[in-house]
Nucleic acid binder design. Structure first.
Length: 586
RNA sequence: GCACCCGUAGUUCAGUGGAUAGAACGCAGCGUUGCGGACGCUGAGGUCGGGGGUUCGAGUCCCUCCGGGUGCACCA
């Protein structure tokens, strides 16, 4: 909540207490969707009508009347100005308030002063959040689904940091299990000690695909071999562990490049293989507490049916571990180390049941912090050319997608401009923008059909459109000789300048940025930032189309320069939160 | 069968219980002696899957049905 909405909320509560004689706990204050109804509105009169047995229209008039008489002003350079230019009661029972032009102008000063920090806040109060994302299996390259995960996780981490949380970005390696043995087994059998002559994770992926092919021919014997190999691993067989090390390190090495391309990073990497021993002990504890039981085959099963979810195997009948074995221990370990207030698991929605089970087991084990765990589920990503299948190995890997986007942007740039200074960097950054924005603008719950052609376009709701908007603004600033350096702006100086509707519309978008970031943080929803940026860009381009800046005179011109600078700040900061690097020229 | 998610314009998507449901793409037009036309402006296009309910007010909350997706024990 912005300072104005806090002030306003309190004021209205006081007025209601005074005039209606009732206390209101939750007062809803909103920005009306239609700006002709003002900048703030409350419908409290209507929800109060029944309780106080009065006509809502009468209540609204009383509230509006009191608000008009109240001191709602702000100070700038020792002068006082009204915050609102209009306060009125409307038809059924709304109270609408319109911000004054002075207050809106004052926001320009605030934006320019805050600069790179504009949009940040301290609602997180340095609380600790762990956000676990990416989690690829080191037995093949990352596919497009990982890209969505990487973008969601890394963007959300930045958003949470920006609103004042102490964030730890964690990558959890599923480096232990039969799935790794698939690539390992094939390498052992057919690899001939081969060393990578291509991106090393892709080589690992080749063996993974080989496994899937072999498995089609001869499932039973291969699965037996796989189980034997994993058993050897768990018992610490040196030769097997050597292959394990080789394969997983090739995967990690290859991913470095993918993460770099995607602008994704982590504060810490943790490995499933380090949690096996303690994980098994915690399963023992679950048995002792009566949460889990050993069945006839020897498998340990958590009984969860009475909680409305399927029972969960926590240890195989041959005594080896599975995913949840280590995951329970990891959560406990993390809590002890980080004392988190929230731990977010960014994992696709197919794992929803799994996380309900995991969280329930931890709760039953008596860990009160289990309620701080949250599964951020996201939907499936497919491509127009058809669904992908990890079974057949016909997976679209993320590197290929990026390469394709890169080529498409290169063409777009070439077709649009004759001479480009940094074609490589520009098209790479545009590809990153197209990729990240194309995925992040969609609500995480939705499935996505990722359309190369659409997301790379410079028109429409795309990353490149936002990049273009930013570059246009920067071009004006550069010609005005402003660039990165500070801009003097004061309400006093521009007090008498009457802003146009387009200018006012733009400031109205700009001042909302901090609250939009908070909304995105609270909802773990980067798409809120994305859609906001798009709307703001549209407002700027509309302003740009018929409002001269460099050709304007005197104070009008410098006032507009300030506004353009504000737009550039919001775009840069906002795109930064989405993990997109702006280009100054394109 | 049980559980979870989704269903909004031809298509892809927004839409904190509020006022006339928005945008993009596509379609039909328009705008350049002007800072980047990679833009802007106008228009057509909707019984918000169906039906009940709660509420002063429902795309939004509850119930139910239909359609689509996903998950249901020793994969991750």
């Amino acid at each position: 909540m912005s300072a104005v909405s806090v002030l306003l909320t309190e004021k209205i509560k006081d007025i209601i207490k005074k005039t209606q004689g009732v206390e209101v706990k939750d007062l809803v204050l909103e920005h009306p969707a239609n700006e002709k109804f003002g900048d703030f509105a409350t419908s409290i009169a209507m929800s109060l009508a029944k309780k106080v047995e009065k006509d809502p229209w009468e209540i609204a008039q009383e509230i509006a009347g009191e608000l008009k008489g109240a001191d709602l002003s702000f100070e700038s350079s020792k002068d006082h100005y009204p915050i609102f230019s209009s306060i009125e009661a409307v038809k059924p029972g709304f109270v609408n308030l319109t911000l004054s032009e002075e207050w809106l102008k004052e926001q320009i000063t605030e934006v320019l002063e805050a600069g790179d920090k504009y949009g940040s806040s301290n609602v997180g109060q340095n609380k600790n959040i762990i956000i676990e994302y990416s989690q690829p299996n080191p037995n093949k390259p990352m596919h497009i689904g990982h890209a969505r995960n990487n973008f969601l996780g890394s963007s959300l981490a930045q958003i949470l940091k920006f609103v004042g949380y102490n964030v730890t970005k964690m990558n959890y390696m599923n480096d232990w299990g039969t799935h790794i043995c698939k690539s390992m087994l094939m390498y052992q059998k057919y690899g001939n000690d081969e060393e990578p002559n291509k991106k090393s994770d892709h080589l690992v992926g080749d063996f993974y695909i080989m496994y899937e092919k072999e498995h089609g021919k001869n499932p039973e014997s291969l699965e037996t071999e796989l189980a034997e190999m994993f058993k050897k691993m768990e018992s610490g067989d040196a030769k097997t562990l050597e292959i394990w090390k080789k394969i997983t390190e090739w995967a990690y090495k290859g991913w470095e490049e993918t993460y770099k391309d995607e602008n994704v990073s982590f504060d810490t990497w943790v490995y499933q293989s380090n949690y096996t021993k303690a994980g098994k002990e915690i399963v023992g504890l679950a048995i002792k507490k009566g949460i889990a039981k050993k069945d006839k085959s020897g498998a340990v099963i958590a009984k969860l049916e009475k909680y409305g979810m399927p029972d969960k195997v926590m240890l195989r009948s041959d005594g080896t571990s599975i995913y949840i074995t280590q995951d329970t221990q990891l959560a406990k370990d993390n809590y002890e180390k980080y004392n988190f207030d929230k731990r977010i698991y960014v994992v696709d929605s197919r794992q929803s049941d799994y996380f309900r089970q995991l969280f329930k087991v931890l709760e039953l084990l008596g860990f009160e912090w289990a309620k701080k765990l949250y599964h951020l589920a996201y939907g499936w990503v497919s491509l127009p050319e058809g669904a992908m299948s990890s079974r057949t190995g016909a997976v679209v890997n993320a590197d290929d997608v990026f390469k394709k986007l890169n080529n498409l942007e290169r063409d777009e740039v070439r077709n649009s401009i004759k001479e480009v200074e940094n074609l490589d960097t520009t098209s790479r950054n545009l590809a990153l923008a197209a990729f990240r924005y194309g995925i992040l603008k969609i609500d995480s719950r939705q499935d996505i059909v990722f359309d190369y052609a659409k997301v790379t376009k410079f028109e429409g709701n795309t990353g490149p459109y936002l990049m273009y908007t930013y570059a246009r603004a920067k071009s004006i600033l550069e010609k005005a000789g402003i660039g990165e350096k500070d801009l003097e702006f004061s309400l006093k100086k521009y007090e008498s300048i009457k802003m146009t509707d387009k200018e006012l519309a733009l400031v109205r978008a700009v001042y909302k940025f901090p609250e939009v970031v908070i909304e995105a943080a609270n909802g773990f929803a980067p798409h809120v930032v994305a859609n906001y940026l798009y709307e703001t860009a549209q407002r700027f381009n509309s302003f740009y189309a018929d409002t001269p800046v460099l050709n304007a005179k005197g104070d009008v011109r410098s006032c507009r320069e300030g506004l353009v600078k504000c737009l550039s700040v919001v775009m840069k900061n906002g795109l930064g939160l989405l993990g997109i690097k702006v280009v100054e020229k394109m």
